[in-house]
């Protein structure tokens, strides 16, 4: 459904020195700065797939989505979404996609959501019966039927986001871009949005690309992950794969009974010691030596509880994003 080939985008901005003199100078001469936002990106997304697009701020996630939604033109490369070049903005293409932006309201601020939705029904030419059925379903699942007639500006952030989701999906898009859909929401609202996205995916099978800084979004919703660093794709694969590829160790945590005495020296030959006190030992142990380390801990210390965990995905991604060159597993 989405095919991206060597897609690149550079932006030209102007640098302005701070202060009054900088402002005066910029009236006559401005220094041009070329920023590479996305570089040679290639990937595909299939029907019913939710792909997590992650990266630090400025990594190029939103720029990539904007190109695939047809909002901006690429500098080079090509992309086909449902067979269309997005930036040519064919109406047949635009009727089949949706972009949900957590940081940008799309609904008419001064009108009740119901009015905006009616407008969108007309904009997308949705037949009456289909509109009614879709709206009933979306409002019921998102639990906002009672808020449809309240002006959008008076809704809570969570309710507004739910309305944004309805507005984006009321025409039944086959491709959905979700740009930080849970940003700023409380935990309950985040969970509700995630559950809804999963349910919607099950029922409608659209291709979805999701960007988020919340790892829980990515872990709950995406089986596949694309990691962007400074505009380049540095990883494209399964969520489990990124852990296996980039985390060469697991975290072994032992909680001790009060009467234990712990020697740091003895622990260092089992793995890297992250924490060590009278009640807790936390080690980073190479994958191949986890069983041996666990057995050693149980033998040597009065262990009350033992946990063996993968490194948090957020930590791995953060490490990849920080690294300048090739990230060694």
């Amino acid at each position: 459904m989405i095919e991206v080939t060597s897609l690149s985008k550079t932006f030209t901005t102007h640098r302005k020195d701070p202060g009054l003199w900088g402002s005066v100078r910029s009236l006559f001469k401005r220094e041009k700065v070329i920023k590479r936002a996305v570089h040679e990106s290639t990937f595909q997304v299939g029907e019913g797939e939710i792909v997590g697009l992650v990266g630090a701020n400025g990594a190029g996630k939103t720029t990539l989505i904007k190109m695939l939604a047809g909002i901006i033109h690429p500098t080079s490369g090509d992309a086909r979404v449902l067979g269309f070049r997005p930036w040519e903005r064919d109406n047949k293409f635009r009727r089949q996609i949706a972009l949900i932006m957590g940081q940008k309201a799309q609904l008419w601020w001064d009108l009740p959501a119901a009015d905006s939705l009616l407008l969108l029904k007309e904009i997308y030419g949705v037949p009456d019966d289909r509109y009614r059925a879709t709206l009933d379903y979306l409002a019921r699942v998102l639990d906002v039927a009672g808020q449809l007639t309240i002006p959008v500006r008076r809704l809570s952030l969570g309710e507004r986001m739910k309305m944004e989701l309805i507005a984006a999906l009321v025409h039944g898009p086959r491709v959905v871009y979700l740009d930080e859909p849970t940003i700023g929401l409380d935990l309950t609202a985040q969970r509700a949005i995630r559950d809804f996205i999963l349910a919607y995916r099950e029922q409608n099978r659209p291709a979805m690309i999701l960007t988020s800084h919340y790892m829980e979004d990515i872990e709950r919703l995406c089986k596949r992950l694309i990691i962007l660093r400074e505009g380049e794709i540095v990883y494209d694969g399964s969520l489990a794969g990124v852990v296996e590829k980039y985390a060469d160790h697991k975290v072994v945590t032992a909680h001790l009974r009060k009467d234990g005495s712990v020697s740091r020296e003895g622990l260092e030959r089992l793995g890297q010691v992250d924490a060590c006190d009278d009640v807790t030992i936390r080690l980073r142990v190479p994958r191949g030596r986890v069983a041996e380390a666990a057995a050693e801990l149980l033998k040597r210390y009065p262990v009350a509880d033992l946990a063996i965990e993968e490194v948090e995905i957020g930590t791995i991604i953060e490490r990849i994003q920080r690294a300048k060159g090739e990230v060694k597993p």
Binding site: K66, I71, R94, A98, K104, Q106, I123, Y124
Partner: peptide, 12 residues
């Protein structure tokens, strides 16, 4: 302010 974005998405 970027409000144009939503209009670019609409088929009108």
């Amino acid at each position: 302010e970027g409000g144009l974005t939503r209009y670019l998405l609409y088929p009108v």
